[in-house]
């Protein structure tokens, strides 16, 4: 099978299909084999063992939301670093590339320092 560039991805797709098939098959077999005798008590949310009170969704801190922003910034930063790291040693790059990355990481570091200063990175 020769699909050129995408040929390598076909195998990933094959594994994906096998994975979905096996998981779906297992859940289907489970559905066929298991008993189902529900009672109101069984269908109550477990939470911590005592009877649940009020709405199921709890309020949570906005900080998690800020974290996902920070994550997006730094994940993108890391993704920019990867191609840089692979071509860095190639002829024709060298010093200029290095200085550019210093500048880029300087900006990113400024970001984390700003978050730090704004007390995003404190957990009480």
């Amino acid at each position: 099978m020769s699909l050129g560039y995408l040929g390598s991805y076909a195998a990933v797709l094959a594994l994906f299909v096998v994975g979905v098939a096996i998981v779906a098959g297992a859940l289907f077999a489970n559905r066929m084999l298991r008993p189902t005798r529900p009672t109101p008590d069984k269908l109550a949310t477990y939470e911590c063992g005592v009877d649940p009170v009020g709405e199921g969704w709890a309020q949570s801190q906005v900080r998690y939301y800020v974290f996902t922003y920070l994550y997006v910034i730094f994940a993108v930063d890391a993704v920019f670093l990867f191609p840089w790291a692979t071509v860095f040693a190639a002829p024709g790059f060298g010093m200029t590339t290095l200085v550019e990355m210093f500048v880029f990481l300087g900006f990113i570091a400024l970001g984390i320092l700003y978050g730090w200063r704004k007390r995003v990175l404190t957990w009480a």
Binding site: N30, R34, T36, R37, K42, L43, A44, T45, Y46, G56
Partner: peptide, 12 residues
């Protein structure tokens, strides 16, 4: 685990 009753709580 494969043969146990599967509980899906009412509110989920």
């Amino acid at each position: 685990m494969g043969l146990k009753e599967d509980l899906m709580p009412r509110t989920v």
